[in-house]
Design a binder for these strands. Sequence first.
DNA 1: GAAAAATCTTGAACTGGTTCAAGAAATGGT
DNA 2: ACCATTTCTTGAACCAGTTCAAGATTTTTC
Lengths: 191, 191
Amino acid sequence: MELLFSNIQRHISLSEEDKHIISSFWTIKRLNRGEHLLSAGSVCRYDAFVLEGSLKGYITDADTGREEIVFLAVADWWASDLESFHTQHASSLNITAITPATVALISLPAFNELLEKLPKLEKYFRIILQYHVTALLRRIYYRNAHDAKSRYKTFLQQYPALQEQIPQYLIASYLGISAEMLSKIRAQKDL
Amino acid sequence: MELLFSNIQRHISLSEEDKHIISSFWTIKRLNRGEHLLSAGSVCRYDAFVLEGSLKGYITDADTGREEIVFLAVADWWASDLESFHTQHASSLNITAITPATVALISLPAFNELLEKLPKLEKYFRIILQYHVTALLRRIYYRNAHDAKSRYKTFLQQYPALQEQIPQYLIASYLGISAEMLSKIRAQKDL
DNA sequence: GAAAAATCTTGAACTGGTTCAAGAAATGGT
DNA sequence: ACCATTTCTTGAACCAGTTCAAGATTTTTC
């Protein structure tokens, strides 16, 4: 929970009282390796903040059964289907623990109530969403403008922490590369 | 300006007084075809809401000079480099009018002052950013999981309006396809 | 409304990356 | 510690999409 406070405090200030209020709206959940936080077809009931471990968000192709990684999340990141969470419509996304993980969860009613009690959190969520949008636009740009090797190099620079926590074949999918190709890229000397 | 009000009112309610306050913070600017709203290397001074016409956001490759489209924007959309706008650091993005365009502009100091005067706008911006994140994640998923033809078909369904306003070769770049390939896809009967 | 510029089309050669396959190495569960 | 499972590697055949080139068409400008 401290991790969430420090994340929030990077953008707005919190009193002890504020922290107390915030705490009361969240529940902590542990996930086993492979356990689902959200399954395609069901509604995203909780917005999740990752405290420990790593998760993947992915879409399973109905025909081929292939998993396509949409996002990866480790400690200090958010992991949920915002659209499904806010509309409470069925999600097409799966979210699963890659390693054993601990997440902080908040339901939509609790989320709305929390924002009413602590309106300054609106600003916090606005700001982190701004960063998120920027990061996603950059990801799209790299996907379209750079080849596989250069995308991987950029990824390693940008998220050195992920390299150890996430299997290669999931990183490959995240980058829009086949697992085999990424293996061959890594075999090259001049990374 | 009415377009901006109605955009905001899709998410929160505004009194006439609110509208009056909002109006006072924005300035209207007309752009000629090809005119820059933002040039790579300079700071994004304004957050822009498109009232008329169409704009492109793109990155020019330093070596090849190729333009890579990052986003397209038409009436009722936003067009700016959020990161550069909020940090006031140099942007790597160009934003240019594809057709003659009218935009509503707000500077960062004005933006912050507006949010202080009308805190409920925090919620509006949070909500539209949520939609934006969702749309960008979907775009990434399609880019990675689907071939060129299927991406184009999905694009036509999702943004039928853009087809008429934006040259094909820019749509191709937006989708991560070469202009020639898109032309060949369009020549196929079974779209 | 003519000239210039921008956009679109088509074909041929090529290539970055995929798919398939099968074995090697690492990791997890009990 | 062992076995089962997951993850990673490597090579060969293949292909979706790119690049290059050159002409056709449309749109803009003056």
